[in-house]
Design a protein around this nucleic acid. Structure first.
Length: 797
RNA sequence: GCCGGUGUGGUGGAAUGGCAGACACGCGCGACUCAAAAUCGCGAGGGAAACCGUGUGGGUUCGAGUCCCACCACCGGCACCA
């Protein structure tokens, strides 16, 4: 046999529009979604083939089961690597994208994926990003898109601002260059306004627990209180704490180096110069450097000023230290060294008093942070209370006295939405001196990217668009006066935050998708993608969907009913595939050598779908042999249309197992079961009747081989369009079973009994077995346990 | 440090609390061949055996890879979040 038939079937499927989604069928709908690829110049990666093959298997199987399946694909094509290629090769990024998309398309086709290509979307297509811009303008209208001057992460190589989420280990996620802090005016999206809903609605969706946990931790809700501390300067310093119960133990305060009071207290501070020096040093530090200095706490005492503990009325010193962040809480804390690890270390370094206010630990050795067992001490009216009760009492007291209030905080920060780059959606805003930031009128969308001469960012950090004066200079849509366009573009995450909606109605010129079509297809029934997108893409798209839900554009608050995640495919050396390690494998090469069906089978057989697995070029051969065995079995089939009586039970068990395992993503055991069946029949021979069922079971995994053999058997139509086989419950029941006999829990013998034998028969057969008699002879039988058709356990003394 | 996950033959991995190692790779032996490759057949957790075996040590149970407690190792994420 050869594998040359694969192209033939791919052509036939395309010509006959086999995988076109039926828009008006009365069948049950299923929307299956995979994360659309970024069409990089490196071509399709092995890592793409695992999730794509898995969901393709599912899509093919569900179509055969009579469901109306939407299984689309597209391109997440804006982004820096393409822009960098464009700069290096002096080609327009759109041309680079087009070239890469063509390569990807042919690679996906060569895998035999059953995407509905009529639904293809491309985030860089103006007809697509018209709606990305439309959504942005809605955010702007609702006050959820705003401009803020703030410290941002500045990549020293990309000359570009990064979201906190894009900074990995203190370096740029994309280019690994150093990231420093810098102030810049940025467009922001107010994702924090949705923090609570993003947590709450996780309860209603079917995501893996590990994904939910990671999102909850990322959003990071904490309950506590804000408390006002008077200062000798007259100003009131407001702090946030999760432990208001420990207020009596607050022996000093710390403010962030970026805290505005430092400027305000310029004339009061006797050591203002020293404080400013410390602030400037902290500002110059990258996140990476800050984390390098974990061991030694640094800070400067504010001289000439003291704060007052509102419950003890004692004066306490105030410090500035970079372990307090302006971006969380109020940028100021009360320090309770007895019951917080960082405060304890700081207090030890600076020789500050440590007071015990919760009994149960030894504060001379370390901070006591247990909130479950502690009892309040040295805390006035809180003494004797448990921590949780003390929290409530002190918060009520503070509220009553007007000194503070209970407060919920989130770690989640607003989304920095500006990029000073060319290859992104232009932000449709016009800046007018008189009217401020004004939306580009909806009827002017899409606001297309103009052609520019060079795509390099300017040295000032402005977008390359800023050099296009004829594009930048416009009239204000409100007052008609002179105005300028926003030159920042959107981040890559924008286009991918709603793409699943566009698949539904990808040619609609009047809406992002028609309400009717959205109602029909949404929510996505099953979305598979990588764990690495859990806190970025997955959270962002949930946020956008909730916003669209509030606008009434979509009918459900959550976009995805079910989420699953594949494990990573590692190189042969067990390490992550990377160019630098030289262990990267190209799926094209595997397809060329063994064929797409072998590639598909192996990537599914490699191991537990949700766990990482190392590629083995040896093990691929096993799947190739399986295809060849299947082929040989078919070629010498017996002409009868009946199934072989001797293997009928195994055949029906196989139908059951393959049907069920695919739904649970247990592709490896489904294929193992098919292998067992093929091995069994290779000895006894298969009939046409056997093959008719087996080929349909094979079809989702190895669709080309299944269609080829289907045709060679003379069966009508395409195998992939046949009905999925069903099994007969009666036929999977064995007539005889092997029962394990244990004595005191140890296996001593196996006996064969008619299936369904009653307990008494089983026990008697076990007791009479010659291998059992020596183990129970002369002893008293105290108990027998029977698990029907599986185990007899004789407990003797 | 915190959070999450994972530890099973030489390897990838199977196993609703019920015969650990299915299926596959690799390996060994045999057949075919002048020979090799391919293919086919057979074999194997360790141990001479009693027995011992799912990271380690306890526990629950008639019975634990699976459940509980403590620990160890590795992987991933986050990291001064008050």
């Amino acid at each position: 046999m050869t594998k040359d038939y694969e192209k033939k079937w791919q052509k036939r499927w395309a010509e006959e529009n086999v995988f076109k989604t039926a828009e008006d069928s009365g069948k049950e709908k299923t929307y299956l979604l995979v994360e659309f690829p970024y069409p990089s110049g490196n071509g399709l990666h092995i890592g793409h083939t695992r999730p794509y093959t898995a969901i393709d298997v599912l899509a093919r199987k569900r179509r055969m089961q009579g469901q109306n399946v939407l299984f689309p694909i597209g391109w997440d094509a804006f982004g820096l690597p393409t822009e960098n290629t464009a700069i290096a090769k002096k080609i327009h990024p759109a041309a680079v994208t087009k070239e890469n998309v063509e390569i990807f398309r042919s690679q996906l086709d060569s895998m035999g994926y059953s995407f509905d290509w009529d639904r293809e979307v491309n985030t860089t297509d103006p007809a697509y990003y018209k709606w990305t811009q439309w959504i942005f303008l809605k955010f702007f209208e609702k006050g959820l898109a705003y401009k803020a001057r703030m410290p941002v992460n500045w990549c020293t190589s990309c000359l570009c601002v990064l979201a906190n989420e894009e900074v990995v280990d203190g370096v740029c996620e994309r280019c690994s260059s150093a990231v420093v802090r810098r102030e810049k005016s940025q467009w922001m999206l107010k994702i924090t306004a949705y923090a609570q809903r993003l947590i709450d609605d996780l309860d209603g969706v079917d995501f893996p627990e590990r994904v939910k946990a990671q999102q909850r931790n990322w959003i990071g809700r904490s309950e506590g209180a804000e408390v006002d501390f008077k200062t000798t300067a007259g100003d009131v310093l407001r702090i946030y704490t999760t432990r208001p119960d420990t207020l009596f133990g607050a022996t000093y305060m710390v403010i962030s180096p970026e805290h505005p009071f430092i400027e305000k207290w310029k004339n009061i501070l006797e050591n203002y110069g020293e404080v400013i020096e410390y602030r400037d040093k902290a500002a110059r530090k990258s996140d990476f450097e800050r984390t390098e200095l974990v061991k030694e706490k640094t800070g400067v005492k504010l001289v000439g000023l003291r704060a007052v503990n509102p419950v003890t009325n004692e004066e306490i010193p105030v410090f500035v230290s970079d372990y307090v962040l302006m971006s969380y809480g109020t940028g100021a804390i009360m320090a309770v060294p007895g019951h917080d690890d960082r405060d304890w270390e700081f207090a030890k370094t600076f020789g500050l008093p440590i007071i015990e206010v919760v009994a149960g630990g030894d504060i001379s050795q370390s901070a006591f942070t247990d909130v479950e067992t502690g009892i309040m001490v040295n805390s006035g009216f809180l003494n004797g209370l448990e921590v949780s009760d003390a929290k409530k009492k002190i918060t009520d007291w503070l509220t009553e006295k007007g000194l503070g209030e209970s407060r919920v905080n989130y770690k989640l920060r607003d989304w920095v939405f500006s990029r000073q780059r060319y290859w992104g959606e232009p932000i449709p805003i016009i800046h007018c001196e008189k009217c401020g930031a004004v939306a580009v009128p909806y009827d002017e969308l899409p606001l297309e990217l103009p052609m520019v001469d060079s795509y390099e960012p300017t040295e000032s950090g402005e977008s390359p668009l800023s050099k296009m004066r004829s594009w930048v200079e416009v009239k204000c849509p409100v007052c008609g006066g002179n105005a300028e366009r926003e030159t920042d573009t959107m981040p890559q995450w924008a286009g991918s935050s709603w793409y699943f909606l566009r698949y539904i109605d990808n040619k609609n010129e009047n809406e992002l998708a028609s309400a009717e079509a959205i109602k029909k297809w949404m929510p996505v029934d099953w979305y598979n993608g990588g764990m690495e997108h859990t806190t970025l893409h997955l959270l962002y798209s949930r946020f956008w969907h909730k916003f669209l839900f509030d606008l009434g554009v979509v009918p459900t608050p959550e976009p995805y009913k079910r989420r699953t995640s594949q494990g990573m495919i590692l190189g042969e050396d067990g390490q992550k595939m990377s160019k630098s390690r030289g262990n990267v494998l190209n799926p094209n090469d595997i397809v060329a050598e063994y064929g797409a069906d072998t590639m598909r089978l192996y990537i599914m057989f490699i191991g537990d779908f949700e766990k990482a697995a190392s590629w083995s070029s040896q093990a691929v051969k096993g799947c190739r042999r399986f295809v060849e065995k299947f082929w040989a079995l078919s070629e010498k089939s017996k002409p009868t249309q009946n199934v072989s009586p001797a293997t009928e039970g195994l055949l029906h068990k196989t139908i059951k197992k393959v049907t069920e395992d695919i739904e649970q993503l247990k592709f490896n055991t489904a294929i193992a079961q098919l292998m067992t069946l093929v091995n069994e029949l290779s000895a006894s021979g298969a009939t046409k009747g056997d093959l008719n069922i087996m080929l349909r079971l094979l079809s989702p995994f190895a669709p080309h081989t299944a269609d080829e053999l289907w045709e060679r058997q003379g069966f009508k139509g395409l195998c992939c369009k046949q009905e999925w086989p069903s099994y007969d419950k009666v036929k999977i029941i064995d007539k005889e079973v092997t029962v394990a006999v244990q004595v005191n829990g140890k296996l001593r013998a196996s006996i064969v009994l008619p299936a369904g034998s009653d307990d008494e028969t089983a026990i008697n057969a076990a007791k009479e077995d010659e291998r059992i008699i020596p183990h129970i002879g002369g002893k008293t039988l105290v108990r027998t346990i029977v698990v029907k058709d599986r185990i007899v356990n004789l407990v003797v003394k």
